[in-house]
């Protein structure tokens, strides 16, 4: 079943068109990789899906609902959550507070506690550093925190933007192992990567973005 569908999505920055009408689909249970060179529009695509960039034209359907004009915060409620490029940890908040931010839209404290357990089991390093400020973590730990934070919203579709950026090869392996594990636990994943080989080896399908076209 199709979970996410982009139809001819175009995004402009001022007068510059960053995406010239791309189309892609993600089916439930899949890991889909979106790869492409720097400046091809991968991050713009992610922003369009998350709603932090509005569309110039085209349509985004999520779980059967047209979300093209839906506010970003309401897309999180619908089950879409992104771990953004460059991790974007809240530097002044502790690891726990960062994880709580992921559950910002939720009120079911029992469910949140269960998901916290799950995240801390997936990333034992985060459990050790609960009280530490997010800004003081290493790059790999920050990436784990960014993925864990997104999982705390219990997403139907997890969007991962460049999870391997700036990390050592061993850490990249670890992160991708965990991504596979998260998928096997039932979360659909759309993955944006420059590291095409690693991404495609983990994905069921892939799209290549060439300067704004897929």
């Amino acid at each position: 079943m199709t979970l996410l569908e982009l139809e001819n999505v175009a995004v402009t920055y001022g007068r510059i068109e960053a995406l010239h009408g791309i189309s892609l689909t993600v089916n439930e249970g899949e890991v889909v990789a979106l790869i492409g060179a720097n400046g091809a529009g991968k991050t713009t695509t992610m922003r369009a899906i998350s709603g932090t960039r509005s569309l110039a034209s085209g349509k985004i359907t999520f779980n059967g609902e047209d979300i093209s004009k839906l506010r970003a915060d309401l897309r999180v409620v619908r089950g879409l959550c992104q771990s953004p490029e460059g991790r974007q940890i809240f530097p002044g908040m502790t690891v726990m507070e960062n994880l709580d931010m992921g559950a910002y839209t939720r009120r079911d404290s029992a469910g949140i506690a269960a998901d916290l357990d799950r995240v801390l089991t997936l990333f034992p390093r985060l459990a050790e550093r609960r009280k530490q400020a997010g800004g003081t973590l290493s790059g790999g730990e920050q990436q784990m925190l960014a993925v864990g934070r997104a999982l705390m919203s219990r997403p139907k579709l997890l969007l991962l933007d460049e999870p391997s950026m700036g990390l050592a090869p061993l850490v990249i392996r670890q992160i991708f192992d965990i991504i596979t594990e998260i998928n096997q636990q039932g979360t659909t994943i759309l993955l944006v990567e420059q590291n095409a080989q690693q991404a495609l080896s983990r994905a069921h399908r892939g799209y290549v973005l060439e300067t704004g076209r897929s």
Binding site: D73, P84, Q88, Y104
Partner: peptide, 8 residues
């Protein structure tokens, strides 16, 4: 921007 991604 990240706050918006978290649903704020």
């Amino acid at each position: 921007e990240t706050a918006a991604l978290m649903g704020v």
